[in-house]
Design a binder for these strands. Structure first.
Ligand SMILES: [Mn+2]
Ligand SMILES: [Mn+2]
Ligand SMILES: [Zn+2]
Ligand SMILES: [Zn+2]
Lengths: 143, 143
DNA sequence: TTTTAAATGCAACTTTGTTGCATTTATTGT
DNA sequence: ACAATAAATGCAACAAAGTTGCATTTAAAA
């Protein structure tokens, strides 16, 4: 039997990281919010008895190891979400965009079904980030 | 005869803003860097005898009045660039993407020739921001 | 159980951004 | 050209956000 906690433990150990209670709580929070991304301030509220510094370091570690990625990065707040299994210590691979709903203010990862082509002659494209703002399907249909 | 300074003065007065030396220096800096965007830290260096607070307030004013816009907004640094004449006190209108070159580290505004369609059924799209990283045409051709 | 490197907590610090208020200055009208 | 005035600026004090060094604790391996 493989509980969700066990799978998170495995995820950490695969990346040579220790499965500490703080890290598991952090990841469980992100997992529960899938497909919505979570801000640092929400993480801080949830982990209120954890030192700020530890959370900063945890985020940095998870980014480096390809466990989480930044979704809808703005100057005000950064949203974090779990990566899929494509990402590793080596590199991140995401073929999705980030949608911020101005109604429910949720940031979600949305899969890109068709590949998007940009006409930039003699440019080399390495990374594409797409942020869209509007009203999400839930808020739009639930009139 | 219409010097560039005069045109900048006119731009400010059209938006009910006073043409102060600081504001003209600020806009001249952005104009000289076109089509590259400029970070706050670069602005601060250029206007080293201007108070930080004034620069923060100048940026906010220019954003509100549709004179500048944020290009390649990240948590670390925000890049600012002049708006085209479409933008006003009412709203910003941009149909271009922002390209960050990992070689020369310049952020440039690139026009979108063809409109990009996203397949997001029952979503309402209000704003689209596209950030691309890679190697720009100048760096790519100058091998 | 013991060992040990990794992870955490704490304190001090830096950097970045904000607010209130006094002073200065660009613009308008005389 | 000068005076009046509202806008813009500078300064000080503050608040928020992020960083660093180091001592202590703990997960994982022996
Ligand atoms: Mn995502
Ligand atoms: Mn732009
Ligand atoms: Zn919504
Ligand atoms: Zn370049």
């Amino acid at each position: 039997m493989d509980t969700t906690i066990d799978s998170l433990k495995k995820l950490l150990q695969e990346r040579d990281l220790r499965a500490t209670p703080i890290r598991l709580e952090f990841l469980e929070l992100l997992r529960l919010n899938t497909p919505s991304a979570v801000t640092l301030s929400v993480i801080q509220e949830a982990c209120h008895n954890t030192d700020r510094v530890t959370l900063y370091r945890t985020i940095q570690t998870f980014l480096d190891k390809g466990i989480i990625h930044k979704a809808h990065q703005s100057k005000e707040e950064v949203y974090y979400a779990l990566c899929n299994s494509n990402c590793s210590t080596k590199a991140h691979f995401h073929d999705h965009l980030h949608f911020k709903c101005s109604s429910c203010s949720q940031v979600t990862c949305q899969h890109l079904n068709k590949e998007i082509k940009f006409l930039l002659p003699s440019f080399q494209i390495n990374k594409v980030e797409i942020h869209i703002e509007g009203v999400c399907n839930r808020c739009n249909t639930t009139t």
